[in-house]
Design a protein around this nucleic acid. Structure first.
Lengths: 180, 180
DNA sequence: AAAACATACGAACAAGTGTTCGTTTTTTTG
DNA sequence: CAAAAAAACGAACACTTGTTCGTATGTTTT
């Protein structure tokens, strides 16, 4: 699964061959099928495992008895942490889900939509409480989510800066920008 | 080229078939080759056309006799504009370039690297002049670039908000976050 | 109108795809 | 150690891929 994630990350799902994957794990292509049912099974697993991580994150944020800004900071930190611990999976989650076939595709999109709905709710709440500036919640959320979508591609920056500091710097930029 | 960009955008380069493309433009697959030399030619054109747009943008910013913040705001606006005018191309530029083969791949990465080098220079300059907060220029740049990487996926938000306002809102979030 | 050209087509090809099958090898269990 | 189960293999299959080729059909130039 790990090697599959790496290949999907670098070459993309469609461009990745079962024969390539086999070679990377030291097997013949046919042998893979003693362990998995299909190529898509790999993609399904990677997509939904990561989807769960994100959903769990937002659930935890919702439960917290804290200010909206603290919740958002928590979410940012959490997502940066996930991205740094398992960057290749995040790529798959971000970019390769579109190769899921039905019914997995619909299911995945549903989870994603739900995640964004809950995120939006937090932001909207923050605007109402005048914690956040009065900008379209949708714009804020998308900017927020996107702004960290490079972290998993720069592991060298992690070594340089350290996760704690990296996380703090990014949070500072974004939070300063949306705080009232 | 336009239909190709759309297909590459929704299905990905590798997953897009010449037969599909042919059907979309109302031809048989073989007929396409009266107009293009290969499938990759399409990808090459899309990648480098967009690369040029971005390079031109940063060149213009460099020339401007303005503060660093104004330059960055100009760049943000420009890139948002590009993303909204031709969203599918931006996807190809962002995500599908990796399917370029040599020597195009190296050439493309060189251009990209050069673009980031010049962007970094602007930011570093801004930090030196105390216009920007003292955070790793690399972190600032990546956050900046990424933060708008969703715009081209939400044309409905454009209709709702209008490009001018959308651009202003995003700029406000990001610039407030990095201004000293 | 003839010649030259661009465009479109169907058929085909060579290479590569995910996957299956029957068999052999290796590991685990009783 | 023998039996059962799991894992690995090579060969093959059915299908799809980008692309080529010879040919036909319009379209432009002379």
């Amino acid at each position: 699964m790990k090697k599959a994630a790496e290949l999907f990350h670098t070459k993309g799902y469609t461009a990745t061959t079962m024969r390539e994957l086999a070679q990377v794990v030291g097997l013949e292509a046919s042998s893979l099928y003693s362990h998995i049912k299909s190529k898509e099974e790999l993609l399904i697993h990677l997509c939904f495992t990561n989807a769960k991580k994100f959903s769990d994150g937002i659930e935890e944020a919702e439960k917290q008895d804290s200010s909206v800004c603290e919740k958002i900071e928590f979410l940012l930190n959490q997502q940066i942490k996930i991205a740094l611990e398992d960057g290749t999976s995040v790529t798959v989650f971000d970019d390769e889900w579109k190769h899921l076939s039905e019914p997995y595709l619909s299911s995945f999109l549903q989870i994603r939509k739900d995640y964004q709905r809950r995120f939006l709710k937090i932001i909207t709440h923050g605007i109402e409480k005048k914690e956040l500036i009065d900008i379209s919640p949708s714009i804020i959320m998308n900017t927020l989510i996107s702004s960290i979508r490079w972290v998993h591609l720069k592991p060298e920056l992690l070594k340089q800066t350290g996760m704690q500091d990296l996380s703090k710097d990014i949070s500072q930029i974004i939070l300063t920008g949306i705080k009232k």
